[in-house]
């Protein structure tokens, strides 16, 4: 075997592994649909003043079940594990923990703050600058927490987009960053709409594209 032949074997084998790597897009489709639906429905509820009878964001919690099934099934099917897989998995696991941390923060901090400040003997009051209405006692709240969610959505999406050279995900992440900036200047009702748009742009659309490419590659391998 000549040195040139050795080099071409190395090159060819690395290329063959690369060509075999295709993300199925199933998880992106799942989370894109769930966050897209939850965001848009909760925006519509708040905007048009109706209720569907339960918190639509619960579907995000329920989506963990199919996600676990997808992860197990795809793990069984995979004939090799790439370093990109490991890095991407780590980023999305960290993202999941961060999101639940933020949900916990959003649910606990206002109540805890109210408890602390009432213990200190003071409270928050809404004062109308016109002077036409009396002051109202209000509970502490976190302003524009939805903006922080948009910022967090962008992070793993951009990492995955760059490492897996997935342009639609990079675009999705950029849309999340743009929505984050806009959401800093809008009322919280729109944060829900932005979350829905972010879910569709960052995961659902890239998910469809990844799925299409995956099926095309699978047909080519048959």
């Amino acid at each position: 075997m000549s040195e040139q032949e050795s080099l071409s074997i190395i090159h060819e084998m690395i290329q063959r592994v690369k060509s075999d790597y295709h993300e199925s897009g199933t998880s992106a489709l799942l989370w894109g649909s769930v966050v897209g639906i939850a965001g848009i429905v909760s925006f519509l509820e708040r905007h048009f003043g109706f209720s569907i009878g339960f918190d639509i964001w619960l579907i995000v919690l329920l989506a963990i079940i199919p996600q676990v099934i997808i992860a197990i099934r795809e793990g069984k099917k995979k004939k090799f594990k790439s370093y990109t897989d490991i890095a991407t998995d780590a980023v999305w696991i960290t993202f999941g923990i961060t999101i639940f941390g933020l949900i916990f923060y959003g649910n606990i901090v206002p109540g805890a703050t109210e408890h602390i400040i009432s213990g200190e003997g003071w409270g928050l009051v809404k004062h109308f600058s016109s002077g036409n209405q009396p002051d109202e006692k209000i509970s502490p709240f976190i302003p524009s927490l939805g903006s922080v969610f948009l910022l967090i959505y962008a992070f793993p999406t951009l990492v995955t987009g760059i490492t897996e050279k997935c342009r639609p995900m990079v675009i999705g992440a950029v849309i999340c960053y743009i929505l984050f900036v806009i959401s800093c200047f809008t009322v919280s009702e729109y944060d829900m709409l932005f979350a829905g748009i972010a879910g569709i742009a960052a995961w659902l659309i890239p998910g469809f594209i990844l799925r299409k490419n995956y099926l095309k590659a699978r047909r080519a391998h048959v």
Partner: peptide, 11 residues
């Protein structure tokens, strides 16, 4: 060499 080239690029 082919086996090693494959394994160098995956975990």
């Amino acid at each position: 060499l082919a086996v090693m080239s494959l394994l160098i690029s995956v975990k």
